[in-house]
């Protein structure tokens, strides 16, 4: 799937967006669930689960990529099952790059969502309870809307960080032009090639702009929602 017509920058940019978007879409519901479990649920091994969720934050991304390869490689425990039963192959694919990105950005997302959940006034949930709302009803109509600033902040931060994930992606999904060569990978490749200096600079500036835009967008979005929520 080597696109010979488009420029290297556009290719990398489009791919970075795709990978980051798929990563966020995949991890958002799981991050909400993890945040809820860590904040509200009481179960044995909660501390261990907490540490596990935060692991990618401290683990070298290359190690994350390698462990994913062990798990989801075609001869890995899960990888083999996925290929045989669902026909899904993750290593060296765009989907694989998205999975690697999702794993690495997951703790960022959980932290933001968890913080917002901790700030939800339980009194409002109690009020909803006495007004006839059951557990799921309360969560969807009261808790979730009040968590929205945190969910948005988590999603945008994870998206911005996901645009630039390098180590886990290159290890698990390799550096295939048009398939897994996202912005940072393209930048790395340009730096390795003899006449790639100009391209590398353009890619670096592009990354800088995107990161800045992402952070600003996140801040503006959160402010907007806070106003809506009257805080």
């Amino acid at each position: 799937m080597i696109d010979s017509t488009g420029s290297a920058e556009l290719d990398a940019l489009r791919l970075s967006f795709e990978v980051a978007l798929r990563s966020v879409a995949f991890s958002l519901p799981l991050a909400v669930l993890a945040a809820w479990l860590l904040t509200r649920a009481r179960f044995p091994g909660r501390l261990l689960f907490d540490a596990f969720v935060h692991l990618p934050l401290v683990l070298p991304p290359v190690a994350v990529g390698y462990l994913l390869l062990v798990l989801f490689g075609t001869r890995g425990v899960l990888g083999g099952w996925l290929r045989d039963n669902l026909g899904i192959v993750l290593p060296f694919t765009t989907a694989g790059a998205a999975l690697a990105t999702a794993v690495v950005t997951f703790p960022l997302m959980v932290r933001a969502i968890r913080l917002s959940l901790e700030n939800v006034d339980r009194g409002l949930e109690q009020a909803a309870h006495t007004l006839g709302a059951g557990a799921l009803d309360r969560f969807v109509t009261v808790t979730l809307p009040l968590m929205l600033p945190g969910i948005l902040a988590g999603a945008v931060t994870a998206f911005a960080a996901g645009l630039g994930e390098f180590g886990a992606v290159i290890t698990f999904a390799a550096n295939i032009p048009g398939v897994t060569r996202t912005l940072p990978l393209a930048l790395y490749t340009a730096m390795q090639s003899p006449h790639g200096d100009a391209l590398a600079l353009r890619l670096a500036l592009l990354s800088l702009g995107l990161a800045l835009a992402g952070l600003l967008a996140s801040e503006l979005l959160v402010r907007r929602v806070r106003v809506l929520l009257g805080r």
């Binding site: 006034d121 009194g123 006495t130 006839g132 709302a133 059951g134 929520l229």
Partner: peptide, 30 residues
């Protein structure tokens, strides 16, 4: 939620993401 006992708390505990009308409808709809 199945007792149908109304509760007015010390603090109003209005849902900040809903209008007054939305707050009034919350229990009414259920």
């Amino acid at each position: 939620e199945r007792r149908h006992i109304g509760y007015v708390f010390q603090e109003p505990r209005l849902f900040p993401h809903l209008t007054v009308s939305g707050n009034l409808n919350y229990g009414a709809r259920r």
